[in-house]
Structure formats: structure tokens, C-alpha cells
Amino acid sequence: MAALVFVEIEEGEVKKSSLEAVSYAAAVQEGPTAIVFGAINDGEMDKIGAAGAAKVLHVTDDQLAAPNIMAYASAIAEAMSKEGSDLLVLAKSSLGDPVSARVAIKTGASLATNVVDLPDTSDGFKVKCSIYTGKAFAITALSGEKKILGLKKNAISVKEDAGSPAVEEFAPAHVEADFKVKVTERAKATGEILLPEAELVVSGGRGLKGPENWGMIEELAKTIGAATGCSKPVSDMDWRPHHEHVGQTGIKVSPSLYIAVGISGAIQHLAGVNSSKYILVINKDEEAPFFKAADYGVVGDAFEVVPKLTEAIKKAQ
């Protein structure tokens, strides 16, 4: 197989989930090619190489510097044909999902998404996909000659030991019709750890009583380098921004540790966090359903436990 990996850049840096995708592709076939769009910081190409890519196609066309779903899909389909790629690997994201679906139609490739493990090629080509919002898995066979895999975040660990990649400029053809959507503004929290990518997440629920009490959540998050999240009622009441809302109808996270503070653990909330490696629940009600899904629990008042936990962590650092 010849693999191509769509690598996303965020403020000049390669997204961790994209390095997971490169590592995944390298495990399927040594020395995959990566494709990146736009300006990229010094040293970042080497990270792509370290994760296993032998070559990087770098698109430097100004018109493709900012994310454009249709144009990126055209460029990636063109790169697949130029490179003879029969496998495209990418991380699931607000850009990766629509791009992969469009490339699937353009190239006739079979597409599996929410992939959580390396493929089984002993009989055909099968991958394990997370379904029912993390409540089950489907072993999915891809029938097409070309295949596209959308990886769930944090399902694969990043390789860091391969070499430097060969970087090649790639100038894809311009398709006028790909520029129909005009992005007039991109409002983005900068400098924050992005929730969907985060290794560690601290989330607060209605038990925190009001937005003015989020200081201790942010302090705990800052101390351990975590992203902050919340339950649905919390974002519905505008205590926190919508992009922090975790669950069935919000962001699905898969960190190594999810800390839930003052969240009851309704099934719709659990659906967004059940891919976490470890869950710590802090709740004053020992009957809260979240404890059934937790690895560690503290039954107590968040207003006492959270500051004390932050202190204990600082002491141990």
C-alpha cells in the first residue's frame, strides 16, 4: 500500500492528532507521504518525519493557506493520484471529516471513520470503529481498492523516532468552483489547549452553581495543563462557551484523564467521555451515576475538594 496522510496545521504547528495519523499510516506502510497546507513553523516538518513520513508535499499557494474544505479535497485527491496512493489517513476534525467524505466520492475510495485501531489485513481490510457515541465498536470491512481512514483522537500513540522527511512543493490545480464558500471571520480561542485534542480535561457541571465559580476549575486545569469542558446545561445557560460542551450532542473527548466536577453523569454526558482512559469524579452525592463510570472518585463538596486537590498536585510537582 502507498499511504498519504492529510496533516493539519494550527498556528504554524502540526496538530497532535495529525501526528497520530502519520504514526498510524507509518505502522500500516513504512514511509508514508504527508500533505500539508500553508505556513509551517521551523522544526515542524521534522516532527512529521519523526512520526514516520518519508516525504511531505507542501502546498504553499496563498489561496490555500486558510482551510477550504472543497479546495483541500480537490488537492488531496490530486495528490493521491500523483503519488499512486491507495490509502489516505487523517484525524477526525471539523476539517478532516468533510474533506475525507469529499475525497471518498472524488476517488471512489471506501471510507471508515472513528477508527480506533490498526487494520486487520489477514482477510481483506478491516478496522475497528467506535459507534453509538462510544458505547460500542463495529469491525468494519472496506471493500474499495482505495481506502480512507478517519482516526478517532488519542487512539494511536505518536512515534517520535523516525528521520527527517524530504519536503517537496506541491501546486495543485485550481478549481474555481471550490471557492464558493467565503469565510468572513474565524473566531478562535488562542493560547488555550483545545478540548478535542486534549490529553487531560477538567469539566464542570451544574453543581458548580454559577459561572463565577469557574476560577477553581481553571486553576486546576492550568496546574496540570488540561483543557476545560462542561456539561450541556452549563453551556445552555451561557456559563461557558458552547465549544466546551461535552457529550452526546457536544464534543466527544478521549483524554488520558477526564476530571468531572459537579456533573451527575447523565447517559448523554457519558457518551462524550466514555473513550477516556481514566475518569475521576468529584461529586457530593455518592449516588451520582457518574461514579459507576469512574475509575477514581471523591465524594465531597467541590468547593472544598477542588482547591485542595490543586494544592496537593502543586506540592507533588
Binding site: K180, K182, V183, T184, E185, R186, K188, L195, H242, H243
Partner: peptide, 13 residues
């Protein structure tokens, strides 16, 4: 449109 950590405003026909 929601994107990771924020949103995009867009216009189209």
C-alpha cells in the same frame, strides 16, 4: 460553523 475551540462565519449562495 463550529470549529475546534471557536467558530467560522461564512457566506455562500
Amino acid at each position: 460553523r463550529e470549529i475546534e475551540g471557536g467558530k467560522e462565519h461564512m457566506e455562500l449562495e
